Amino acid sequence: MSIELLDRVSLVDGGAQSAAVAGRTTEGLLGRIGNLETRIARNDREIDAAQAVRYRVFVEEMGAQIPSDSARRKRDIDAWDMVCDHLLVLDRSLDCDPEDQIVGTYRLLRHDVARTNGGFYSATEFDVDALMARHPEKRFMELGRSCVLPEYRSKRTVELLWQGCWAYALTHRVDAMFGCGSFPGIRPEEHALALSFLYHNAVARDEWAVRALPELYREMDLMPVEAINPRKALAAMPPLIKGYLRLGAMIGEGAVVDHAFNTTDALIVLPISSISDRYRNYYGADAGRFAS
């Protein structure tokens, strides 16, 4: 599970690159910047193409281990694909079918859908059920399986993916988003500085507290607070996690080692009410903010 593989670029970066409009201008369109568009997958062919993009990033690039049947098909597939919505970024300048224009993807799972289809993927690593039990009136959404092809890892691609998530959340009246932010490798101690900074400065408390499952729990508190240099800790952190911290996100307590995906995972928790005014003003209350 990951929202990690955008971590070579920042989540958002100053200044709108396209004009705002009142509502969507194209059916299903969630945003557009230049030749790139973001929207939800419309058919099985597009979902299959998104799974192929995930395979290229997770397996060929990052060395993830997947079932042999999926490997033969060169697709990253799991059971949640059938119930999730698949957010896409497409390069419309490519002269080919839409499914061959997909250059990035994010997987979105709403609370009501998860409730009737076996729960959230993150529940295999973190006790998200306890978190949601404390907020029975809130609508949650899980973000996962994010990736972008190497040649498209730019600020505008990541900004479009976030705009798509934001517009989708507004449309479905989501109250909080969550998902795993990942560090490369399966040795948490190699990320002691960054993990310790998160533990001392960003761990969710009280009503938003959430922990890794006991059998998977790995300590994040690997350094005393007086030994942490905040500037160096932030520099050592995957940019996607830094981006979510800027938005107002919190971190679950305890890391989880994902051997299949060769990552060390931390849970990101982002209540919509916690998103800083800077980013609320930037993206606005209109789901079509970037659709022009």
Rank of each mutant, 00 (worst) to 15 (best):
residue 6 L to H: 03
residue 12 V to Q: 12
residue 13 D to L: 13
residue 18 S to G: 07
residue 19 A to D: 08
residue 20 A to Y: 09
residue 24 R to A: 04
residue 27 E to A: 14
residue 29 L to E: 14
residue 29 L to V: 06
residue 34 G to Y: 10
residue 34 G to D: 05
residue 35 N to M: 03
residue 36 L to Y: 13
residue 41 A to M: 08
residue 41 A to R: 06
residue 41 A to L: 04
residue 42 R to Y: 03
residue 42 R to H: 07
residue 44 D to W: 00
residue 46 E to H: 07
residue 46 E to N: 08
residue 48 D to S: 10
residue 49 A to N: 07
residue 49 A to H: 10
residue 51 Q to K: 04
residue 53 V to L: 14
residue 57 V to Q: 09
residue 59 V to P: 15
residue 65 Q to C: 13
residue 68 S to H: 05
residue 68 S to W: 01
residue 68 S to A: 15
residue 70 S to Q: 15
residue 77 I to D: 02
residue 78 D to L: 06
residue 81 D to I: 04
residue 83 V to R: 13
residue 84 C to A: 15
residue 88 L to C: 06
residue 88 L to A: 02
residue 88 L to M: 10
residue 92 R to M: 12
residue 92 R to N: 10
residue 94 L to W: 02
residue 95 D to K: 14
residue 97 D to C: 02
residue 98 P to M: 13
residue 101 Q to L: 11
residue 102 I to P: 05
residue 108 L to H: 03
residue 111 H to W: 14
residue 114 A to P: 11
residue 115 R to M: 14
residue 116 T to C: 15
residue 126 F to H: 09
residue 128 V to M: 12
residue 135 H to F: 05
residue 135 H to E: 09
residue 139 R to Y: 09
residue 140 F to I: 07
residue 140 F to D: 12
residue 142 E to V: 07
residue 143 L to E: 02
residue 147 C to I: 06
residue 152 Y to N: 09
residue 155 K to R: 11
residue 156 R to D: 14
residue 160 L to I: 11
residue 160 L to W: 11
residue 163 Q to P: 01
residue 163 Q to V: 02
residue 171 T to Q: 15
residue 173 R to G: 12
residue 176 A to F: 03
residue 180 C to V: 01
residue 181 G to P: 10
residue 181 G to W: 07
residue 183 F to Y: 15
residue 183 F to P: 12
residue 185 G to Y: 11
residue 186 I to E: 15
residue 188 P to N: 07
residue 192 A to K: 14
residue 196 S to H: 04
residue 198 L to R: 10
residue 201 N to S: 08
residue 201 N to C: 06
residue 201 N to I: 00
residue 203 V to R: 08
residue 207 E to N: 04
residue 207 E to C: 01
residue 211 R to Q: 13
residue 212 A to L: 03
residue 213 L to T: 00
residue 214 P to Q: 07
residue 216 L to P: 07
residue 219 E to Y: 00
residue 219 E to G: 01
residue 221 D to H: 05
residue 226 E to P: 00
residue 226 E to Q: 04
residue 227 A to T: 05
residue 228 I to D: 05
residue 228 I to H: 13
residue 229 N to P: 06
residue 231 R to P: 01
residue 232 K to R: 12
residue 234 L to N: 02
residue 235 A to G: 03
residue 238 P to C: 10
residue 243 G to P: 04
residue 244 Y to E: 00
residue 249 A to Y: 02
residue 254 G to K: 07
residue 255 A to K: 09
residue 258 D to P: 08
residue 260 A to I: 00
residue 262 N to S: 11
residue 264 T to E: 13
residue 266 A to H: 05
residue 269 V to E: 07
residue 270 L to Q: 00
residue 273 S to W: 03
residue 273 S to L: 02
residue 279 Y to L: 11
residue 281 N to Q: 12
residue 284 G to T: 11
residue 284 G to D: 11
residue 285 A to H: 06
residue 288 G to C: 03
residue 291 A to H: 02
